[in-house]
């Protein structure tokens, strides 16, 4: 039995227990605990993309996704500092970092799509139907809750513009998640397929959290459980992306070690 997925699931279970059992979901301890995950995910992604370099087509996809994760880690850190100081982080420079990550993710997935050499006409029709149907359902949900309902006449124009842009950015997430599934399919039962499936799962978790936040934002900010625990879904997203990056790093590193060992044996022989 693989130990690494068990470790990641256990970490998530432990943090979930802390959130649900705490008297206050957004206590300083809980938000500090949450804050570690985007940072760890970004660090793991940076470490993974180092072994690829920009000349690698697959590497470019990973580097772009990593850049998106780094932007989100910065955004989460800024938000965290605002929370610790008892200030409302919305809208702030954190939103710029949050929003700029979306096109980076989109570019990364597109690079993955190009590298896979997918021809849409040759994609399995049943899969394509499922992917398009899921995209439409998610688009309707995001469009309604994230864009249409995002407009609040009681707040200023800047806040409304930022809110709507978040909703539109989530539409980018919908499309990228669907493309990720197609990319994963292209690689059959290979390790790279597992990587892209994990990326798809991570992006879908972020999307679900964003939709729920758009629906229950007020209850979230009031600290009402379980709505205040939407953080756990974002956290699950960061854990999932971190896991995908880590597994990929371990696989490629092991290949490098094996071939270096063969080279050493050849020199001795």
């Amino acid at each position: 039995m693989k130990i690494r997925p068990i470790i990641f699931v256990s970490i998530f279970a432990a943090v979930s227990a802390v959130y649900f059992l705490s008297p206050e979901a957004h206590s300083d301890f809980n938000i500090t605990l949450y804050q570690t995950f985007p940072v760890i995910a970004a660090l793991i992604a940076l470490y993974t993309s180092r072994i690829y370099g920009l000349k690698s087509a697959n590497g470019r996809a990973l580097i772009l996704i990593t850049a998106g994760l780094v932007f989100w880690a910065i955004a989460e850190t800024i938000t965290y500092i605002y929370f610790l100081n008892g200030q409302d982080p919305f809208p702030s420079i954190a939103d710029a970092f949050f929003l700029f990550a979306y096109p980076l993710f989109g570019a990364g997935i597109y690079q993955g799509y190009v590298t896979a050499g997918i021809k849409l006409k040759q994609v399995n029709k049943s899969l394509l139907t499922v992917v398009i149907s899921a995209s439409l359902i998610l688009t309707i949900l995001v469009g309604y809750f994230g864009v249409y309902q995002a407009y609040d006449p009681s707040v200023d124009t800047t806040a409304n513009v930022v809110n709507v842009i978040y909703g539109l950015s989530d539409l980018v997430l919908v499309i990228t998640s669907m493309f990720t599934i197609l990319v994963a399919r292209e690689y059959g039962d290979g390790k790279l397929a597992s990587f892209w499936k994990t990326m798809a799962a991570g992006f879908l978790l972020f999307l679900i959290a964003d939709i729920l936040f758009a629906m229950y934002g007020e209850l979230y900010w009031d600290g009402v459980k379980p709505y205040a625990c939407i953080d756990l879904i974002w956290l699950a997203g960061f854990l999932t992306l971190a896991y995908g990056m880590l597994e990929n790093y371990i696989h490629v590193s092991s290949i490098q070690k094996q071939i270096k060992l063969k080279l050493q044996q050849r020199k001795k022989g």
Binding site: I51, S56, A57, V252, I255, Q256, I259, K260, L263
Partner: peptide
Amino acid sequence: ISKYFGQNTASVYDKF
């Protein structure tokens, strides 16, 4: 190899 595994891995295979 570089396309999928990156330049570091490719350079090791180049020697191999």
